[in-house]
Nucleic acid binder design. Structure first.
Lengths: 160, 160
DNA sequence: CGCTCATTTCACAAACTTGTGAAGTTAAGG
DNA sequence: CCTTAACTTCACAAGTTTGTGAAATGAGCG
């Protein structure tokens, strides 16, 4: 891989990280995630990440803590060394969106309670109940959508 | 509506706003949005918002600027007064998720370019291309999902 | 036309976030 | 067990964001 290839990859990493950051993800977590995505084995060591992204070990540590907490990355101890490897889960999107589902459940619950408070005889209550309905609907759809994606993957014999 | 009802509504507004904030929305925008959702006509004036949320007119102005920019709220001049009303769009979720679709398109494009840079013969390239596929798939599913929601609404003769 | 009230803009203070260097902790390997 | 490499935690400086008060803008209404 030439010098300029590396630069092109780095540009991609930064660009994709920027998109994720804009969507609300922590900056360092997004950069680490993107670097892992673009790495040959979907895995890098702390030192590799620090070097590639030009950040301190502390920043890597913080980003990894976040990414493991939300279940996007796993830690693996390299056997025979004292080095740790961070690995992208290989059904990343499936898992990430499944988790998002739990957020929708919480939203729905809050909205349902709000609708009760406002009362079914008020426009506000009806509107809030309908919003709760929408999120319930979303949860359902999400589940079947992910099933369809998984099927499609299996048909093609690939990972996700 | 009694004093304690008002308090209960306010608690709901704050709770739902907190959920949205956690998901990445600006705090004031989330609070204003939640207040509008819980208001009888899905609309409030600047003064009403400022009073209810105990914030300055400047904060209301900023939140409304954001909400109108992302298309979640419309401004309406009350005829016969110099007061402005801010109104929730009534197909809010439909519209909001349609907009989100455009973000997915951008992500897909960045990922597609990344896959090209990495090359189709590398694991990283294949993985990135598959991620792009996932987002393309999502866009598709999103569209048909929203169609189904709209149908369902129409069947019940309600708004969203 | 000019007054007045509603909204917006602006400069700033406070609070929060981010990333770092350095010290602390842990565990592999002698 | 002691050394040392690898990671984590911590305190802090820098940078950003947030919400405010006050001044500016603008639009109804007389």
């Amino acid at each position: 891989m030439t010098r300029s290839d590396e630069e092109a990859v780095s540009r991609f990493v930064e660009r994709f990280a920027a998109e994720m950051t804009e969507a609300g993800m922590q900056r360092m977590a997004a950069r680490v995630f993107a670097a892992l995505l673009a790495s040959e084995n979907a895995s890098l060591t702390s030192a590799e990440l620090a070097e590639q992204l030009v950040i301190s070990p502390a920043a890597v540590s913080g980003a990894i803590r976040y990414l493991t907490q939300v279940g996007m990355v796993a830690r693996e101890r390299e056997p025979g060394t004292r080095r740790e490897r961070y690995v992208l889960h290989n059904e990343i999107w499936y898992e990430t969106f499944t988790r998002r589902d739990q957020i929708l459940t919480r939203w729905e619950k809050v909205l349902r309670e709000g609708a009760d408070t406002l009362g079914p005889d008020t426009a506000a209550g009806a509107r809030t109940a309908e919003t709760a309905d929408f999120f319930a609907f979303l949860q359902d759809e999400m589940t079947s959508m992910l099933d369809r994606w998984r099927e499609r993957k299996e048909a093609r014999g690939a990972q996700s």
